[in-house]
Design a protein around this nucleic acid. Structure first.
Lengths: 355, 355
DNA sequence: GGCTCAGATTGAATCGATTCAATAAGCGTC
DNA sequence: GACGCTTATTGAATCGATTCAATCTGAGCC
């Protein structure tokens, strides 16, 4: 394989200096037309691919792209509805600024650190529920502007958040006001250890993830108002993915107590529960009420349409990207949540109601 | 703003040479523990963010990311169902190779060339229907491995394709065999000039886009077998987007002739037609048959579920990415298409059938 | 012809790292 | 104490471009 053509080679072939050759490509107007064509001629003859961005980059400094870090595989970006909406918000703002997007996966531990350290970007947006602190730490080391989404990055860094506690509170209050007393919680991963299934109270308390902790606290507050103790409520932890959540949803509904309402920490989990209910021939909402969280587009289109807590997902992305480009002082933005009542919740079946 | 800390600064502060400092970060095992900690100490004190990838890159050569070029805005990646599937296939293979993904938009002319020229990637995958040649040309100049999807890039470059002609042929034959004779075509953009609406035969012939041309040829072949001339068939050109296609779908159905079947060049267009039919109170498939193309997940979930031509979209992405990483001789791969009959097609209404 | 001045071209310095041949240091042996 | 051997460290070369002060060129004018 013959060596690749460099700017120097072109300059030499055209009989001009490197500086002039560089100008031909970057400020063609300053070089005499005949010289310009001579250089272009030489470039074509040698098959020169234009100034190598690697060299240029070093001098110019700016990459003109921002990196999005997630804790999952890259394919997650395009499969998960939440991630897609978030990304389209980010992409919108990047389009406006003519910046590119680099996707960085923090999936495998070792790899993650390296991916973040070597990502060629001008700034980072970090989004992840699990593993957040680890990735944030790596990202912070890069000394680049960065914004975290749904992650409390501590002082000195920007973040875009919602009031998860309030959202969860509204969801739980809704079911309680309908008269439900036999509730269960379908939870996202509480600790980043890949263990799913029934979660005991000890595990609830020790959750390392802010989002899950706050939502749990919101549920707890609403329950307490109705004299219920969250530690007495069955909590099932499941991966946020329709397929992998299915067995856990089944297990939840197969539990000993007859549950009349399920509080789900995401719409995807809620849809999994509805699916599981269908398999067990329990009708939603007549036999079982389900509340989601997020309000992804699939929520409104589901049968029955999902009662859920709406959060402005695309806005989250837009705001995060905007914060990167603003280069303003680090600050946190909290976006509003909203309760959306649709068809997946109703009063509990007459027989099951108890005070 | 104080200047950023460089490796040199750290080396100096720790009283070692630049070479040793570099080793501390890249091959820590070769430097004596006490020196190592001394350097790490200095790095921490100065707030050094680790070796700057820009410098490293120049020396090392490899970026460890591939670029995906599209003709649309970046947000298209996350909105269009086809693009999403394609990307998840690409992402899967990238995950396996531990490579990142950079999204490159070729949306605005000027910008496009620059984005491609300056993208920091080891290779390109180009996907676009319109504007293909222009983008391919820019990409080829980079002298990097590249693969085009759905685009005939000519000899010397790899591409992943499907047999568009055959797919379209199968779609048209299906409607014709059901007895439809009053057909219309809902077409993707035939020329990259942003003009939509009724397309005259002259425009059909001069299409600059391979995919559209081949599909049109497939339709024409099936029509010819039943003695019909494609030039006599109304063709409506529309943007491939549920919302922007709506007015064109309306216009198509409002046409003078009573149409009983619509051949759509994509599922998105087909869904737009079904929507338009619903608005005009024409029942699908009883009053109107609709055939799509692509078989996106939404096709099976639609009401009625869409009869369409299935193509292996995620596989296209997987194969394209694989070709990049293989670094094999350029070659073209043609993936299979398959006719999928669902609920959006039926015999034409009795009154409308004519021979 | 000599002088001025604007515009074109040059060439050295720079960006921030990695690499590797050469050197230095440390250690055991005879 | 000299010799070889291993291991650690150094320093210069390199990657591929951009930038800018200095130099060169040539036209216009007196």
């Amino acid at each position: 394989m013959k060596r690749v053509v460099r700017l120097t080679d072109v300059a030499q072939a055209a009989g001009v200096s490197k500086g002039t050759a560089s100008n031909v490509f970057n400020r063609p107007e300053v070089v005499r037309p005949e010289v310009r064509t001579r250089v272009q001629e030489a470039a074509r003859r040698l098959g020169y691919g234009g100034p190598d961005p690697r060299g240029r980059l070093l001098r110019a400094g700016k990459v003109n792209a921002i990196g999005i870090v997630i804790a999952d595989q890259l394919s997650y970006f395009f499969c998960d509805p939440f991630a897609r909406l978030l990304m389209s918000g980010i992409a919108e703002v990047c389009d406006q600024h003519g910046a590119g997007i680099s996707l960085v996966s923090g999936a495998s531990g070792e790899q993650a650190a390296w991916s973040i350290e070597t990502a060629l970007v001008d700034g980072f947006i970090v989004h992840c529920l699990e593993q957040g602190d680890r990735l944030i730490e790596h990202t912070r080391r890069r000394n680049l502007p960065f914004v975290s989404i749904d992650l409390d990055a501590g002082a000195g860094t920007s973040s875009v958040l919602i009031d998860d506690r309030q959202g969860a509170y509204l969801a739980a209050r809704h079911l309680l006001e309908l008269g439900h007393r036999s509730l269960a919680i379908m939870s996202l991963e509480l600790r980043s250890d890949g263990r799913f299934g029934w979660a005991d109270p000890e595990r609830l308390g020790s959750s390392t993830c802010r989002v899950e902790r706050d939502r749990m606290a919101g549920y707890a507050a609403a329950l307490a108002e109705h004299g219920l103790d969250i530690e007495r409520i069955p909590v099932m932890e499941a991966p946020n993915d329709l397929i992998r959540a299915a067995p856990h949803a089944d297990q939840l509904l197969a539990g000993p107590d007859e549950i009349t309402g399920v509080l789900c920490m995401s719409d995807v989990l809620a849809l999994a529960v509805i699916e599981a209910a269908r398999r067990r021939e329990r009708r939603v909402p007549d036999d079982l009420s389900v509340v989601g969280f997020d309000d992804i587009p699939e929520a409104a289109a589901a049968t029955p349409p999902l009662t859920t807590i709406a959060q402005p997902i695309a806005d989250k992305g837009r705001r995060a990207a905007a914060l990167i480009f603003e280069e303003a002082e680090p600050r946190s933005e909290v976006l509003p949540v909203r309760f959306v009542e649709r068809g997946s919740t109703a009063r509990p079946p007459a027989g099951a109601a108890r005070t």
